[in-house]
Amino acid sequence: MKREQLEHVLRAASHVAGDPEILVIGSQAILGGIPEHRLPPAATASMEVDVAFFDDPDDFKADQVDGAIGELSPFHDEFGYYAQGVSVSTATLPAGWRDRLVLVDTAGTRPGRGYLLEPHDCVVSKLVAGREKDLAFAAALLEAGLIDPAVIAERIGTLNVAPALLQRLRSWIATYGGGVER
């Protein structure tokens, strides 16, 4: 996915939901914190933007987005990418993540504004999810030198997760982060 495509999704999601404040919590949040030309292909491979709304307690807005511009919608058919409406609670995130959001507010997003996870927070959430594609995403960013393994390790330490998951995350960062472990 390209930054221009992300902005298009933000614009469309804002129109569909009638809400300009959009949170991007999936892998394509990386497009807010790191210039697209610096990203490895594995970081921009997804054609899906996970969008949530801060004021959506019953996920009504997320459901509207799914129906209008989600997977297999006419929007998806026409453009080749789509939004998936999700809940803010979908991702497990490190403490303080809201204070580190990256604002994407351009002519291409209006009337919407995207609040995208800071790259390290995005990687931590992907490591928690732990699917093969999530681990490949995280490894590609580490290998490209675009995220700091020490910051990832520090943020992993702030998670409120089961001890077994915390150990899996610490082992991953020790293996892939050049021996960094906290």
Rank of each mutant, 00 (worst) to 15 (best):
M1T: 06
W97V: 01
A43C: 05
R110T: 08
T44S: 10
A138T: 13
S73R: 03
A150Q: 15
G33M: 04
A95L: 06
K2M: 06
F60Q: 09
R131M: 12
G145I: 13
D148A: 11
V124C: 14
L166H: 11
D58L: 06
T158K: 13
P20S: 09
A150Y: 14
A29N: 09
R11K: 15
L116R: 06
D66E: 10
F60Y: 06
E36P: 03
L6W: 09
K133C: 12
A42Y: 06
T44E: 09
E181S: 10
G18K: 12
T92V: 06
A150G: 07
K126F: 09
Q167C: 04
V180M: 11
D50N: 08
D121Q: 11
A174I: 02
A52R: 02
L6R: 11
A107P: 07
L135P: 07
G32F: 03
G67E: 11
P20N: 11
I147D: 12
V86A: 05
H76Y: 11
L72A: 04
T106I: 01
A52G: 05
A129F: 05
E21R: 04
V128E: 15
L135N: 15
I34N: 14
R98L: 01
H8P: 02
R113A: 08
D134Y: 10
G67F: 05
R168C: 05
L142S: 13
K133T: 12
L166N: 08
W97R: 00
P74I: 07
L103R: 08
H8W: 13
L141E: 15
V102I: 08
M1K: 13
V86I: 06
L39T: 03
A45D: 07
E181A: 10
L116Y: 00
S27M: 03
Y176H: 11
R113F: 01
I22H: 07
W97T: 00
L117W: 07
E118P: 04
I22L: 12
E118D: 13
L169I: 03
D66Y: 00
V124N: 15
P111A: 14
P41R: 11
I22Q: 10
Y176I: 00
L72E: 08
G178K: 12
D59P: 01
E36I: 03
M1D: 05
R155V: 04
F75H: 11
L142G: 08
F54R: 08
G112I: 08
K133D: 13
A83P: 01
P119D: 10
F54T: 04
R3T: 12
T158M: 11
H120V: 14
K126L: 06
I152G: 12
T44L: 12
K2V: 05
G70K: 07
Q64C: 07
A107Y: 07
E4Y: 03
